[in-house]
Design a protein around this nucleic acid. Structure first.
Lengths: 189, 189
DNA sequence: CCGTTTGCCTAAGATGGCTAGGCTACTACC
DNA sequence: GGTAGTAGCCTAGCCATCTTAGGCAAACGG
């Protein structure tokens, strides 16, 4: 009897692939076990439970996305950086819808603090160096940017823009123009 | 043997309440049946299946939210209307997290077209009358607004802003200021 | 008051999450 | 190279949920 060679990492990877194919909600311990040709119960040697699996997928996705964004950001500043960040974010979400959805699950505070989510925050803040915003405006701007990106990508994915013919790519680039404009000229109190 | 008096509406209502209490993912046919003191199977006389239940909750939430927004919008224009819309939206999401989450499930195109989601789109567009934007800028602006609202609310709910001490209420109102600014001065190509 | 419809029931299969406990392949160490 | 010991997977079995099929009783219309 040959062993399947399960590891937490392989399971997480396979789970991430599965998520992109069939959606996070269908990433089940049973389905994963089937893929590896083992019994469900065997996975519990590596995973605490089903939720643990999804959290791991989320953390993987956060790290992958952070890497992409970091690469996109290298050597850029100002609007150039803003657009590169935004496109990296959106592209990742479209290539990996399941992983992106997995990223949305609630992480408990400590897990979140140890995740690549903090890198996202740092990088977002780095973009703002090109726009010379002082606190607390900087924090507000970071939150607005993040909201816009996440909101757009998430609405696009769930078909929220379907009812209007206008190409979403165009709306996206105009939204980035608008974001650049408002960051350049952040309204003072 | 007294009948429980189940109806689709009562089930949907109860499901919505349940969603706010324990989250949509825990709105199960079984749990709902328990609440009404009937057997699981009985619900299938009124509901097609579990997904049908969640869709109905989503449609209920969309309609409720549209009503609220309509009320908030009455007699307002310009930034006043923008802020009223945004606050109605955010308040609803915070009072009814489960229903808000339910709203995010994919509706098939026909269902979506027959939902109160179209009222949302109309009302969002109505706000822009105060900002004198022609197409296609109007569509782009509608999408950006919607993205910002949804993104902010959704990140706030999943704790995406937790890592920075700044009060989210403040960031919210500054984000609305910024949105107003960019709508007032929409960047031309 | 009697048939028809409506509303809820029991029964039962499928799938998934998870635990307890057993057996076997590897690994390390003498 | 034998032999602990541990790591990896298995069987068995429980409970919850979803769903279908078919039965029976309450409500209601004529």
């Amino acid at each position: 009897m040959v062993r399947a060679g399960l590891t937490v990492d392989r399971l997480t990877m396979a789970g991430a692939e599965l998520a992109d194919e069939v959606g996070v909600e269908n990433v089940t311990v049973a389905a994963l076990a089937r893929q590896f040709g083992v019994k469900d119960a065997s996975l519990y040697f590596h995973l605490k439970n089903a939720h643990d699996l999804r959290v791991r997928i989320a953390l993987l996705a956060l790290a992958e996305l952070a890497d992409r964004v970091a690469a996109a950001l290298a050597g850029r500043a100002g609007k150039d950086a803003l657009v590169a960040f935004a496109n990296a974010y959106r592209d990742y979400a479209r290539e990996h819808p399941g992983r992106y959805a997995a990223m949305q699950i609630d992480l408990d505070p400590q897990t979140a603090a140890a995740s690549a989510g903090v890198r996202h925050a740092e990088m977002t803040r780095a973009i703002l160096r090109g726009y010379r915003l002082a606190e607390p405006d900087q924090t507000d701007a970071v939150r607005m940017m993040h909201s816009t990106f996440h909101g757009f990508v998430s609405l696009e994915r769930t078909g929220g823009f379907r009812h209007t013919p206008r190409a979403t790519d165009d709306s996206w680039s105009r939204t980035l123009d608008a974001l650049d404009a408002v960051l350049t000229n952040w309204p003072s109190r």
